[in-house]
């Protein structure tokens, strides 16, 4: 009795959500491999063991921040205060742990707390009062930077003062993967679970995908958005501690003006700046790709002065591809309209 009725365009074009996303991430992965292989062919030293773990270590910070920023961008917001928060957390953490003679674990705890508080303030302003995140976090950028400078007051902490465990942390590796990058992977793993396997995370996609509809179906927009900002801040705080470990020196200018690099990594990783689309894995790959390109340019002997221009070009290509993909699905709607036209005539 029940016969199947055809759906109207699933036969025409089958965009499977998973394959689409997979395509984007596999796309970045392919570019990654391509760049690495090509560079290695020209300069074999590029991909040697040391080079790889060095690369991962250097990706840790931006990677960590990209993982942090992704849920915020998916919810159609932005956090420009992320780099200031990192710098501030680096300095404040150094100050606190040096004062108390604390080790690695408390350091990360302190850093995470500092970041979480910053994120919570952003979150209250953006999610609670529904102020535009661009303006709020731009303001937060200034406030944090000012507090950081004021507090640091030209002081700096160098390797001698900082706990040696923390200094070693950046050099230690498991199977060539630096500890710090392992930490990023762990955070990313949690992020993937959160964004993919909890209602909490899925709600963020819904909020970014269609904000009015999210209100209508009763999604708790405030708590979801608020926590996204707290997460973002927390990871910025953790990245600050990584900064201590990697550079073994911190002053008030730590990680200054790096916010747009993080946004670039996230967008290159396929997270749509208008929300609703993208994954944490993609953002992490985007961060790696940015770093690999820098490494490749150095290995190829391209003047390092071209780095930034190439970053910009890459970002333009990334958003261009996003646009083409969405245009393609639009033209398919047009095709369906053509069907209607045939019916009319």
């Amino acid at each position: 009795m029940i016969q199947k009725i055809a759906a109207f365009q699933t036969t025409n074009f089958k965009i499977n959500a998973k394959t689409l996303l997979r395509r984007r991430e596999s796309g970045i992965l392919m570019v990654l491999v391509l760049v690495s292989v090509a560079t290695t062919l020209i300069n074999p030293r590029f991909i040697s063991g040391y080079g790889l773990s060095d690369l991962l270590l250097n990706t840790s910070m931006v990677g960590c921040l990209a993982v942090g920023l992704t849920p915020v961008v998916i919810a159609r917001h932005i956090d420009l205060s992320i780099a200031s928060a990192t710098g501030f957390s680096a300095f404040l953490t150094a100050h606190i742990i040096v004062g108390h003679g604390w080790g690695v674990v408390p350091a990360f705890f302190v850093g995470a707390c500092v970041g979480a508080i910053i994120g919570a303030v952003n979150g209250v302003l953006v999610a609670g009062l529904r102020l535009p995140s661009l303006v709020v976090t731009l303001g937060a950028l200034y406030i944090i930077r000012g507090i950081d400078y004021q507090f640091a007051n030209n002081k700096q902490f160098t390797a001698e003062k900082l706990p040696t465990d923390l200094m070693h942390l950046s050099q230690d590796k498991i199977y060539g993967v630096p500890y710090l990058f392992c930490l990023v992977l762990l955070l990313a793993l949690f992020g993937v679970w959160w964004m993919r396997f909890t209602r909490f995370g899925r709600d963020l996609y819904a909020i970014g995908s269609n904000p009015p509809a999210a209100d209508i179906v009763g999604i708790k927009v405030f708590s979801r958005t608020f926590f996204a900002f707290v997460w973002c801040g927390t990871l910025a705080g953790i990245a600050g501690v990584m900064y201590l470990s990697i550079y073994a020196i911190v002053d008030s200018a730590a990680f200054l003006n790096q916010e747009l690099i993080v946004v670039t990594a996230v967008v290159i990783g396929g997270v749509n700046i208008f929300g609703g689309l993208g994954t944490i894995v993609g953002a992490l790959l985007g961060a790696v790709l940015l770093r690999v390109l820098i490494g490749a340019l150095v290995a190829l002997g391209v003047a390092q002065f071209w780095q930034q221009a190439i970053n910009g070009l890459l970002l333009l290509i990334a958003i261009g591809i996003d646009r083409i993909l969405s245009r393609r699905s639009e033209t398919k709607i047009e095709r369906i309209r053509d069907e209607r036209k045939m019916e009319i005539s």
């Binding site: 029940i2 016969q3 199947k4 009725i5 055809a6 759906a7 109207f8 365009q9 699933t10 074009f13 089958k14 965009i15 499977n16 959500a17 998973k18 689409l20 969405s326 699905s329 639009e330 398919k332 709607i333 369906i336």
Partner: peptide
């Protein structure tokens, strides 16, 4: 009685679907 793929995304879906 409609043959829709539950794992495709909603973007680009016809109004009928």
């Amino acid at each position: 009685g409609v043959d829709l793929d539950p794992s495709r995304i909603a973007r680009g879906l016809s109004i009928a679907d």
